[in-house]
């Protein structure tokens, strides 16, 4: 099967805005899944609420589009009741980082055999661009009209600290690296977490001086600092600028996990 065989073609076209990063990210995930050769009948996509969580609806497998923030909790039940199923979760920065935060850290702690793709567009896109726990400090949204005055989460650090077996971060620009990271996550036993920073021209870019889609893509390209380079910077006592963020693989380990098919 090729990537395109995984799409639920009669559901297309999708509801995403033009210029949205979700399409490329879903492409990368389905590329990884089809490359591995998972059986479409034994793969389940699960999601919560939000733009990213609409992804499973466009995929030709069993899928569970659940309540806001709870995708991982639903997935935990599916996986433990039938460990032979492969499970991939689509979620977003609001769905996972805010309302679903507790389920996230507990799934990392349990190290349950799920792969979570968190599309981080820095805001709640579906509902018009409200601030999320990942809205960068000082950036504007409809609920942070004077600039976010709270510090954001670093979901990758959170996942590493809570015990996930695989954690990486890429962007919608880094499609090759992202596909490889998703593949690594799918193949790692235990909890795999891949954060993908993505553009939302409709609700984020236009409020934060990134009017064109290309502006935001370039922003992601130019501000991504490789994990290895960030380590060298730290050794020299250098800091990231307020716009920079770290990409790459943060951990790949084999802590005891649960829900693994035997």
């Amino acid at each position: 099967m090729t990537r395109d065989d995984w799409y639920r073609h009669d559901r297309l076209p999708h509801i995403y805005c033009s210029g949205c990063g979700n399409g490329s990210i879903i492409n990368c995930v389905l590329e990884a899944v089809s490359d591995i050769g998972w059986n479409i009948d034994e793969t389940v996509f699960i999601s919560g609420i939000g733009c990213s969580s609409r992804a499973p609806g466009y995929i030709q497998t069993d899928s569970l589009h659940t309540t806001h923030g709870r995708a991982i909790a639903f997935a935990t039940g599916v996986k433990l009741a039938n460990p032979d199923l492969h499970i991939v979760i689509f979620t977003g920065d609001g769905d996972l980082g805010a309302i679903g935060g507790n389920h996230f850290i507990h799934a990392c702690r349990r190290n349950i055999d799920l792969t979570v793709i968190c599309i981080n567009n820095y805001i709640y896109g579906m509902t018009g661009g409200q601030g999320s726990p990942l809205t960068p400090y000082g950036k504007k949204s409809t609920t942070t009209p004077y600039g976010a005055c709270e510090m954001p989460f670093d979901l990758c650090n959170l996942a590493v600290a809570a015990g996930a077996n695989y954690v990486s971060r890429w962007t919608s620009y880094h499609v090759t690296e992202l596909t490889k990271a998703v593949t690594a996550g799918l193949l790692t036993e235990g909890f795999s977490f891949i954060e993908v920073i993505s553009q939302c021209p409709t609700s984020y870019g236009r409020r934060n001086s990134l009017r064109e889609v290309s502006d935001q893509i370039l922003y992601l390209k130019n501000n991504a600092v490789l994990h290895q380079r960030w380590k060298r910077m730290q050794e020299k006592g250098e800091d990231l600028s307020s716009d920079q963020f770290v990409v790459g693989e943060f951990i790949r380990q084999s802590r005891p996990s649960m829900g693994v098919s035997r």
């Binding site: 699960i46 069993d62 569970l64 659940t66 309540t67 709870r70 909790a73 639903f74 997935a75 935990t76 039940g77 599916v78 996986k79 433990l80 009741a81 039938n82 199923l85 507790n102 389920h103 507990h106």
Partner: peptide
């Protein structure tokens, strides 16, 4: 981790 997750897991399990 809480009752929200408890019923969520039950619904997920039921779909298997």
């Amino acid at each position: 981790e809480d009752e929200i997750a408890g019923i969520a897991a039950v619904i997920g399990a039921s779909w298997t």
